[in-house]
Design a protein around this nucleic acid. Structure first.
Lengths: 338, 338
DNA sequence: ATGGTTCCTGTAACCGGTTACCGTCAACCG
DNA sequence: CGGTTGACGGTAACCGGTTACAGGAACCAT
């Protein structure tokens, strides 16, 4: 029966040694005779002693914890990110503190507060102001995830622009579609901003007039339903709805099908992210695959590396590759292995 | 410009007082003359001093942090839970540690590890073994959320059984349906177990033969798609698919519609939870509304109360009410306000 | 003048670890 | 046999706060 009230001094008393020796035995550092080590280990074992985290942290000046700041847990994308980050952190025996800003105004203060309790923080792009990120980076190592902050702050993100441009070209060239509608708010998140840029770039490159302004909605499934409604009630149905992410695309699909339209026959829909559901709907969603979990894991690794060795810090951006995944919703024939 | 390296002793030196006085001024306790207080506050202000958490925690024997343990972040249900918990904890200025077990085997140890870093833990039902919960409860206050653990451990959950019985009766009596299929694994989570119990109870009460065994799948949207496929490939389409939660119901809806069947005409589908998407699909989903966020917030409140005053602990279960929400997917006419 | 209050503030111990430094002792060498 | 060496382990300072206790000054009543 291990009493968690056991302290190193108590163990020292029981084993007839000093606290220093207990610490040495537990951490396996310094010189301790076999006989003494045995006595100490016995006492530790007998009373289930485990060193207190606070004492350790205070002495070491390290918390062995990292923080993750995100706007909210909307949909599979954020869920995957958080799980990827958490897995990696836990593997390194660091505990994970979360702060969900819900885009509150006072979240900047709360982030600063968090910085005092962890060794490093990963911030999802678009969550807090660049100014807050800078203040944060003055206190602890910071890694931006899926988006970027001020220039000096390292970031891990996926390639958005080129992939979205490629997908858009596919619709414009392969399928000969025009007047594509874009669903997503470029000012809402760095990811959407880049995807919108890729969307426009594809039009530019092909010498086409710039696309219509985006339907500015959020990134959740209900937002996609709403966007579809807004597009359809305009009278003329757009030939294709290019969504900023899969969740809005799935929402748009639901909304479009609910109006009795057929996809891709009456309207084409594409997404971005390749969440598991996208391969399962019918028609399966043409989208862009990005390694969401790996993205977050990489952010965690870079953060932990920097924490362990501040000299290893570099403001470099890690950009993970993405690939266009052609399925049925763009009008391509659905293969046996979608 | 606040240097976070400032310590109370440094401030004391600068203000020409002792550390004790700095502490008294910061915490507003004890007697301090107006003149001294002013000098100290000036020094604090000038150097942006904020007391270190570790020192505070070590002295107070309190971490001012709570933990949340959950199996994984699958879908809006868990997302809502986590956000509800986090909001409430942050309001009480407690930081939130998360542990995502992913149903790993070594998660019991990691939970114990977490217990050494927080003042209390909330565990989602079905995440870790009852034995681990007991060991945990010996170390820190524990509140179970959405499910229950060992008897002595307090829990916060929603009413599942009666609501599912009511919904099932609605299908059996109002719509005269028979041979309902249940989708969900009763052994996978306490929630599903209770819902399955309510499903069976409704059959019992009406003197009907017990329902067919459940289609044992997970709780995510793709699981619903898979379940629908399994049900449909049996040849005879069941008149109704009663899903353990909305996400599988939405998945089943996608799967069924993808096969060219119509809902509710060819097959009825119901869910449980009432996630936002459920009101938006067509037909809108008949389901049971449970106050997910409020559930988690209540768990956080009970945990924080117990942490603040261990004498306030009670093994009582808080059960929040649920309500059946009739929409179109069960065959009822869809009103203007679904 | 003296003893008792009251108000303010400093000293030092404490929370629970880590670790620099130093003393002890046995072994070994010249 | 004195001196050097190296293994071992204890003492105490330190991390950054909180707080019990005590001491000193000012004031009041006797």
């Amino acid at each position: 029966m291990g009493n968690s009230r056991m302290t190193a001094r108590e163990i020292a008393r029981l084993a007839g040694v000093s606290v220093a020796t207990v610490s040495r035995v537990w951490n396996g550092v310094g010189q301790v005779s076999e006989e003494t080590r045995r006595r100490v280990l016995e006492a530790i074992e007998a009373h289930g002693y485990r060193p207190d985290h606070l004492g350790k942290a205070l002495a070491a000046g390290r918390h062995n914890a990292v923080g993750l700041v995100f706007p909210g847990l909307s949909g599979p994308y954020f869920s995957e990110l958080i799980q990827g980050f958490e897995s990696e952190a836990v593997q390194s025996r660091a505990s994970v503190h979360i702060l969900c800003t819900h885009l509150r105004e006072d979240s900047d203060d709360q982030v600063i507060e968090m910085a005092r309790r962890v060794d490093g923080i990963t911030v999802l792009g678009g969550t807090i102001s660049d100014d807050a990120v800078r203040r944060l980076a003055d206190m602890v190592p910071v890694v931006m995830l899926a988006g970027s902050g001020p220039d000096q702050v390292p970031a891990v993100r996926a390639e958005n622009t080129a992939a979205m441009a490629e997908l858009t070209r596919h619709l414009l060239v392969e399928h000969g579609l025009r007047n594509l509608a874009f669903v997503g708010n470029p000012d809402g998140s760095p990811d959407v901003s880049e995807r919108w840029a890729g969307f426009r770039a594809a039009h530019d490159e092909l010498g086409l007039p710039p696309p219509a302004p985006p339907i500015r909605v959020g990134l959740q499934q209900p937002d996609g339903v709403y966007a579809a409604e807004r597009l359809l009630e305009r009278g003329t149905v757009p030939p294709a709805i290019v969504c900023a992410n899969d969740e809005t695309a799935l929402g748009a699909l639901v909304g479009v099908l609910g109006r009795g339209l057929r996809v891709p026959r009456d309207v084409v829909i594409t997404g971005f992210d390749d969440v598991p559901m996208s391969a399962l709907v019918s028609p399966p969603l043409t989208t862009v695959r990005q390694p969401i979990r790996e993205l977050a894991a990489e952010a965690a690794r870079r953060l932990l590396t920097t924490v362990a060795d501040p000299a290893a810090a570099s403001p470099e951006h890690t950009v993970l590759p993405t690939t266009v995944v052609i399925r049925g919703s763009c009008g391509c024939p659905v293969g046996p292995n979608p």
